[in-house]
């Protein structure tokens, strides 16, 4: 069981990179007036066949050879649905996959969003050749992190160069704080 929504997001995004995605878009949107927390991940990876898609929420289905269960998507779905929210996943072979989870923001069973910055940092560090577009919204305010723009500026300089890694960390920290005012989500 995951303890934070941000860990579910990391898990699903890892699936996107394993599907060979060149761009993974991660949207986290908090809306206090509709009382919803929406998480959407979309990628341009290899996608799933109709048969795989039908079984993706079944915990006893996985494409892995190393074990017989696949709990990532079932965990995520359950986490959303147990807060009165919803879960959907769309996929087309050769096009990509889009996963959407809506959580009841103030529902007692909603787990904390957790350390989103750490999830994004981990993804960027581990997948230097994949681009990530992270959009964080808090009511009317929002910010974006787009590694394509970073890459354009940096050229040959790697994301794990200490100065660059520190910049990315601060970029996430400062902009998130400015967007949500430090709200505990």
């Amino acid at each position: 069981m995951m303890t934070e929504i941000s860990l579910n997001i990391l898990d699903v995004a890892e699936n996107s990179t394993r599907a060979g995605a060149s761009l993974v878009t991660i949207l986290v949107s908090v809306n206090t007036s509709t009382d919803e927390l929406t998480v959407q991940l979309s990628d341009d990876g290899c996608g799933m066949t109709k048969e795989q898609l039908e079984h993706v929420t079944d915990p006893f289905f996985t494409t892995r050879q190393t074990r017989k269960v696949g709990l990532g998507i079932p965990f995520f779905k359950y986490a959303a649905e147990s807060t009165g929210g919803s879960f959907s996943i769309e996929s087309k072979p050769g096009i990509g996959t889009k996963t959407t989870a809506v959580f009841g923001l103030s529902h007692i069973d909603r787990m904390p969003l957790g350390d989103m910055n750490s999830t994004i940092q981990t993804l960027i560090t581990c997948h230097p050749d994949t681009d990530f577009l992270y959009i964080y919204r808090y009511n009317e305010a929002s910010f974006e992190l787009d590694t394509r723009l970073f890459r354009e500026i940096l050229g040959e300089i790697a994301f794990d160069t200490p100065e660059v890694a520190a910049y990315i960390k601060e970029y996430l920290f400062e902009n998130k704080l400015e967007t949500d005012g430090g709200a505990v989500i």
Partner: peptide, 23 residues
């Protein structure tokens, strides 16, 4: 960093290692 690793606490382990290597 599959579901099993992430659920058991792999994220802080990975971040600690990459921070140490970078710093």
């Amino acid at each position: 960093m599959a579901t099993c690793g992430i659920a058991s606490g792999a994220r802080p382990v990975l971040n600690k290692l990459s921070d140490l290597v970078q710093e």
